[in-house]
Design a protein around this nucleic acid. Structure first.
Lengths: 343, 343
DNA sequence: TTGTAGGCGTTATCAA
DNA sequence: TTGATAACGCCTACAA
């Protein structure tokens, strides 16, 4: 009753609550935040009451330092505005919420140096887990690797999305199989020539998708005329398509972009060149982001359950006995790849 | 030299660094994190060296409790997967990064109860700022209001996006003007009848856009045949379009959706009904999200500089002497609203 | 079951 | 300039 500073609603500290309820700090802590309950019901009541009369909200930073770790789940993406990452984020957000965890998002802009820097900053938060959604490369950056280990050392669980990288937990999507299914299906629709719009080699996701597609398409009797590399973005797709057009694109050719983002860029470029997807040229993508169903012609794509990927990633962080699962992909054939007479 | 526990890389604490460098905790703190410098260069050097030899990363939680506040900027959105919010997020992410702040994103799903709950959780983080992107309603929820005040009480700056709400800093976009410009322009293109696809009244953004459009369109000689209300989402757009179709849509009518998300839903629905936007029916949206340029026909829309909105919001949080600015909107006329002979 | 007290990693005050 | 040391808000043995 010494410094009875009447703090305004919402600024109360645990000590204030304890005083208001007439119990000790420890007791208040136990009923409000502690796990195993062993407090008399009458006290519980009073503390709870005092707490919401004062609008108490625990200071999570303080909790974090006391506990030696926060319940923060960090999501690392290349670019939030990219629908691919946005949809994954939505899944992570939902699951994190369900698990009573906070979520923070950091962006790398696909730059390993920046990724390492961001990871280091994240490490300062002592996160419960880190989800690496920005794609892994076959030979990871040394600094990044170092940070990943350090985070693990501090008790954080690091999860990689998409492709299995050494050591970490991962939520796999079977990129190779998806590519293969698509290649087979489009071979079956009568396509015999394909041009691939790909990102620079070295990214696991890219390599897997490409391999799978080549396997499926050639097995179905098709052949790959060319692979054009450009950044793994919408602009990259446009760029690669430009290169393809310059190199010459025979009617009836299938253009396969390794992501829908690239495919959308390609679609626009194609149109700008006065040609129409689904007519003389066919176009297919990968990811099946929401927008792919909106364009005209609707885009054929390999469906990746992005939100589920995000949710699984959170499970991978949270579940003690996580077993790596591989999410099945399926193909969605749409108007951008109409069946054509074999010939 | 007592407990020389050789911690592994990345797990070092400030004390470890100090010991390694042979200086006091205080000194180490000063060179590594403190602002105003008053440490001998030789010491600076040694501390820095020790720090990165040990891979030291400051525990931000500890910093937060010591400082009584974190450098966290929280972004509150309805749904991250929605491109509108995703693009704003990207802007916030970039600016937050520039300002050396962390960013966290929470989602409300457009539910005020949930919004209040999330704000309360956020309050526990003692954030530097909170950006409210999920749209404000004319008469805000009481609990939400309470939380907003509490956050302010704790030193956080709350910023509202889109429409000015009482008391808080805000990044305005001139929705009314945007709507008016569009109405005027389309009136000028010869449209005489319009049906509006709107969200439930009460949301400031909605009301402003609607008012502006009506003013602009009627001034140009058009008239509003009907306003169909449905949720402010893609599905809502489809729903509202369905209602409009059932009510009967005369050829030559302009359908104006109050957001691109709704417009895209409407577009799909329209097509499902066998009618094509840009031919007998015209369609326009609002926001000009990336996807709007991809669909066919490309969607006429009011351009909102979403990323810039996000960046400005961060400035509003950070700048001590922030003056509310209103971002100008512009219209992008595209193929979904071709000029038509007046008649 | 409850309360006391020490500790978590940092910052900041105040002597030295 | 540097270094003890007291906060910061909370958790948790440990003792009562």
């Amino acid at each position: 009753m010494s410094d009875q500073i009447t703090r305004r609603y919402g600024t109360a500290t645990l000590e204030d609550v304890a005083r208001e309820a007439g119990v000790s700090l420890a007791t208040a802590s136990r009923v409000l935040n502690g796990s195993t309950r062993k407090v008399a019901e009458s006290y519980r009541e009073r503390v709870r009451e005092a707490a919401d009369r004062l609008g108490y909200a625990p200071n999570v930073s303080a909790q974090a330092v006391a506990n030696g770790g926060s319940s923060l789940i960090a999501l690392v993406v290349a670019d939030i505005a990219d629908p691919y990452f946005a949809q994954i984020s939505a899944g992570v957000a939902r699951a994190a919420d369900r698990e009573q965890c906070f979520m923070t998002i950091v962006t790398t802009g696909r730059d390993p140096r920046r990724e390492a820097a961001m990871l280091r900053v994240l490490r300062g938060q002592r996160p419960r887990g880190v989800i690496l959604a920005s794609s892994r490369s076959a030979e990871p950056d040394a600094m990044v690797q170092r940070e990943i280990e350090a985070i693990g050392e501090l008790g954080g669980t690091v999860v990689a999305l998409g492709s299995g990288a050494g050591g970490l937990r991962s939520v796999l999507m079977d990129n190779r199989d998806g590519g293969q299914q698509l290649g087979a299906a489009l071979g079956g629709r009568g396509y015999r020539h394909a041009v691939v719009l790909a990102a620079p080699t070295g990214l696991l996701t890219i390599d897997e998708r490409l391999e799978g597609f080549i396997a499926g398409f050639t097995a179905a009797g098709g052949r790959i005329d060319a692979v054009h590399r450009a950044p793994f973005t919408r602009e990259g797709g446009a760029e690669a398509m430009r290169a393809a057009l310059e190199a010459g694109l025979e009617p009836g050719t299938l253009v396969f972009a390794l992501s829908d983002a690239m495919a959308l860029g390609a679609l626009r470029e194609l149109r700008a060149a006065g040609r129409e997807a689904g007519e003389d040229i066919a176009l297919a993508g990968f990811d099946d982001i929401d927008a792919s169903g909106d364009v005209t012609p609707a885009l054929t794509s390999v469906h990746v359950p992005l939100e589920e990927v995000g949710e699984q990633a959170v499970q991978a962080v949270v579940d003690a006995d996580w077993k790596p699962a591989s999410l099945p992909l399926s193909i969605h054939l749409r108007d951008s790849t109409p069946a054509r007479p074999v010939g």
